[in-house]
């Protein structure tokens, strides 16, 4: 089974970081994984996206054009990618930042006010992790032990004091 994931938003929202988190969740879940950032003109324009593949089989193209799961954190990315989600797929939307409501009946959309939740819970700048928590819950892609191991790995040593905050953000997302 293959899970192709596309994460998109503005530069600075931590899109690449949660992409790395996802890739490690896959790796520690003993799957094949790949992670590919946008490094082209879109990045130079301020928007940023990241393809993550998690699969039981070796990964061919690491570039995700038709995601099973889409996570979006700004309106330009939502407009650009909502049509590309595979039929039967999921879309995770930061509803504090994106007002649009999806009219596609063949995919499931999850509206999480991630930015508001982050601010209310003293987790400034962690809306990305909250939204990722929701994706983890809905796709059932990792258990608690793997999540903890992953967070400890991807949070850099200099920011080790943020490990608990990241775990808290994931929990908030998972409880939505």
């Amino acid at each position: 089974m293959t899970n192709d994931i596309l994460l998109a938003g503005f530069g600075g929202q931590g899109i690449l970081f949660i992409g790395k988190m996802l890739a490690y969740l896959g790796l520690y879940g003993e799957k094949q994984v790949s992670w590919l950032p946008s490094y082209g003109p879109e990045m130079r324009g301020g928007t940023c996206n990241c393809s993550v593949c998690v699969s039981d089989d070796p990964i061919g193209s690491p570039l995700v054009l038709e995601p099973d799961n889409l996570l979006v954190m700004n309106t330009p990315s939502y407009d650009k990618f909502i049509g590309s989600v595979k039929s039967g797929g999921n879309c995770f939307i930061d509803s504090t930042l994106i007002e649009a409501v999806c009219d596609r009946a063949d995919i499931s959309c999850f509206y999480v006010p991630a930015t508001r939740l982050a601010n209310e819970n003293d987790l400034h700048g962690m809306a990305n992790v909250i939204l990722l928590g929701k994706m983890i819950k809905e796709t059932g892609m990792a258990d608690e032990a793997v999540i903890e191991k992953t967070v400890k790995k991807v949070v850099p040593p200099k920011k080790a004091h943020l490990i608990d905050a990241n775990l808290k953000a994931l929990k908030i997302g998972m409880s939505q």
Binding site: K20, S34, W35, P37, Y39, P62, L63
Partner: peptide, 10 residues
Amino acid sequence: DGLLGQMMEP
């Protein structure tokens, strides 16, 4: 190529 250079894998 750019794909291999930029992508992360184990």
